[in-house]
Amino acid sequence: METLIAQLLNGLSLGSIYALIALGYTMVYGIIQLINFAHGEILMIGAYAGFFAITKLELGFFPALIVAMVVSVVLGIIVERVAYKPLRNSTRLSALITAIGVSLFLQNGGLQVFGTDYVTFPRAVDKVTYKFLGGNATITSHQILILIITVIMMFILQYIVHKTKTGKAMRAVSYDKDAALLMGVNVDSVITVTFAIGSAFAAVAGVLLGMYYQTIHPLMGSMPGLKAFIAAVLGGIGIIPGAMAGGFLLGIIETLVSGYLSSAYRDVVVFGLLIVILVVKPTGLLGKDTHEKV
């Protein structure tokens, strides 16, 4: 029982990481229906920006977080303008390939610029370990911090999308780009804003990921990015609370499989489950069924 609680705590903290990355992913997908494969790489650039802000500019954790967000937002906007915008009216497939191309470019460019070594991320926030249940379960201050930030970010995102004017415009673009244009929505700038917000979220995730796991690397974004995307799909892609639910679900499932079955088969179970969920309920756990327009 104590082990189970310890494992659930492990799952919850892993899940909050996935949820954090999935938030940005799901928002961008929700608005422009593009799997932004470069999300993980924008996260990586954010992590490096945070790293340099802390080590070279000697900033504290939160100022460094802001620097990272600014850098990622600029990068996100450039990527959108240069690589995605010209393809807005082409096939989904060309856009997908471009997204993967951008991702490869940033990964390998990162290897060139930052080098191939793992870089140790400074411990900008003190780590305190809390033990309970007779030392059988532990939780660290970093895990708590990530959990709190993830929840706050979700509410901020919900607020932006559902309560602000920009959010309204974003939703309009998501329903029907052409109609939104006719109604006077500046589609281009709405999409740019979407990318900017998504990139800022990626930067936060990158810095937290770096701090939590202590190393950063030019390829650090790809696997968490893919897992986060799966989390977003599990929860129902485009739905903000869904990304959250999917993230936690994925984290807990992975932990339980590793803890009670075998970690060697963890990814098999996760991807198998993904396929099953997609087949049974293609819109994800929190998704609504929509009927196809003829």
Partner: peptide, 20 residues
């Protein structure tokens, strides 16, 4: 005995198992 995957970041689940 357990295996991890090269892209793993989270080892606590298996380590918790080892502890027992």
């Amino acid at each position: 005995e357990e295996g991890y995957v090269e892209s793993d970041l989270e080892f606590r689940p298996t380590l918790t198992k080892f502890k027992q």
